[in-house]
Design a protein around this nucleic acid. Structure first.
Lengths: 140, 140
DNA sequence: ATAAAGCTGAGTAAATTTATCGGGATTACC
DNA sequence: GGTAATCCCGATAAATTTACTCAGCTTTAT
């Protein structure tokens, strides 16, 4: 039930981009240093984030990455999904899927995982980057 | 953010024990067959469950495993914790721990993981085996 | 005595995660 | 137009975890 390093680093990096939202693009190297994350590993993390449309990139000198939208418009759930795939404690209840597996007994446990998935999703979609950096009221 | 097979199998096996709660000890081999789980792998799963006091074992012929308490007294969270360790999306907010890590920025993301941990814990502790097998009202 | 069951540590193959490498493509600046 | 900063990206390697297997023991009903 753990997040991978990818997800954790990704959220941290996105929070940093949120803090720098008004400063123009931030080079990856800077984020890697400040967050003490391998630069090359971070590159791998930023690729799916960009493909998911969460960040924009600018090449060349003075380039770097910036949030594609205001911090209040980016949910933590968006980041996690981009990096770790659909939120689900077990595969057979992945967000989107609705097929049941064959086992009759499985249907007994299925409800647990659906509820858990929904609560996790709901919370992660309730929190935006703006919440995290304290730009808006606490969303407890 | 996935449960391991250990956790998933463990919950399924415990649900089966709940269904057989009045039938005396159930041999592991039977559970393994019905649930289509490797017998030897299940053995490894039942060890921590027993050590956590969730099940009782009876050796010898006619032996097997049975829930240590009524299905209504065993929470899904108990099972998960016995098999996967403390519930926590990232290590630094493991249940019990309260120390903060050095990074200043980490404190920004910490709140997310604490909330997520609490919601997950809360839900899993709300659901007992009795709920799962339908002996009591739905705990949505 | 026998066989059915649980008990348990050690070992292993596969998968996944966490990186690293190497080089290419853009572009601001001089 | 050359240079250096920066993003882009596929391939590979190292480390870790997962999911299981093996082998052999202990207990106990019959």
């Amino acid at each position: 039930m753990k997040l991978s390093a990818k997800g954790e680093y990704g959220v941290r990096a996105m929070v940093m981009l949120a803090l720098c939202y008004d400063d123009g693009p931030v080079p990856l190297r800077e984020i890697a240093e400040k967050e003490n994350i391998s630069y090359q590993f971070l590159e791998q993390i930023f690729l799916p984030l960009r493909r998911a449309g969460l960040i924009d990139s600018v090449r060349g000198p003075k380039g770097g990455y910036a949030l594609a939208r205001a911090p209040g418009e980016i949910k933590v759930g968006d980041i996690i999904r981009a990096l770790e795939g659909p939120i689900a404690p077990v595969d057979c209840v992945s967000e989107g899927k609705s097929d049941r597996c064959g086992r009759t007994e499985a249907c007994l446990t299925r409800g647990i995982w659906e509820k858990l998935r929904d609560r996790m999703s709901q919370l992660l979609d309730e929190i935006t980057l703006a919440d995290v950096i304290g730009l808006s009221a606490d969303s407890t």
